[in-house]
Design a protein around this nucleic acid. Structure first.
Lengths: 126, 126
DNA sequence: CTAACCTACAACCAAATGGTTGTAGATCAG
DNA sequence: CTGATCTACAACCATTTGGTTGTAGGTTAG
């Protein structure tokens, strides 16, 4: 799958940017809003009790993390969400969870080796 | 499922802490190490080109995000990973992705309504 | 053209972050 | 007991972050 390859290509800095961008409730909401439907920066800004410039900065953070893209339309800048980056982050977390599952399996394997069954005993030390 | 409930219960601040904790390569590696097997803070610290105190702080960040827990064992503090918090984050990202899928479906529904079939042409203006 | 609107960006500020060093308390080994 | 080890925590520093206000330029409406 192509998804796996994109995971390999991710630099630490890129992953840093994605998670850092997600670590703010306002930005998560902006991302959510822009996933529901594309909106201009000023449309987005009206939803929040902060200045337009602050929202503009939040959008810039999401953009550097490639979670959204901007597209000029006349005097407006339309914010499009980019689900690919989001999916990348989700798959990365899945990979960490897989480590855990591997660990569980390793432990189970050890336990199996220590309690060799009832019949085929500890005779595999070659 | 219990997982869904835990998603509802998550405050913005808790989610902030989880993603912020993940937004640092050293912390992600500490998390990874502690998923492979439980280790003391000083064992973990030997892997990184920074002071023990710095690693201690990173572990504290992971702990506040509930991505790891610490357990005293004699003079050592053993770091255990907590896959539940990781899973929570992954499910949260899945929820965002679901928004996107809903949007696609909404658009498809609109397109279906506008092009009623291939046979019964543009005759639907009531 | 003029006014309103949308955006970009700089300058500034307070608070958080990521690192350091240093000090001190427990615990273990000999 | 003594010394080495593991941890906790404070103080400090540079940088980043999240907010503000202000200025300026491009675009649209009337």
């Amino acid at each position: 799958m192509v998804v796996d390859q994109s995971l390999r290509d991710l630099s630490d800095a890129e992953i840093d940017r994605i998670f850092a961008a997600l670590a703010d409730a306002t930005r998560r909401d902006i991302l959510r809003q822009s996933m529901l439907h594309d909106q201009s920066v000023s449309e987005l800004a009206r939803n929040y009790a902060m200045s337009f410039a602050a929202v503009q900065k939040h959008v810039a953070v999401l953009e550097r993390a490639q979670l959204v893209t901007k597209e000029r339309r006349g005097r407006e800048q339309i914010v499009h969400s980019n689900p690919a980056a989001l999916r990348t982050a989700a798959r990365l977390l899945d990979a960490y969870e897989a480590l855990w599952r591997d660990r569980i399996h390793r432990i189970e394997a050890i336990l199996d080796a220590e309690t060799p069954q009832s019949g085929t005993d500890q005779g595999t030390q070659q």
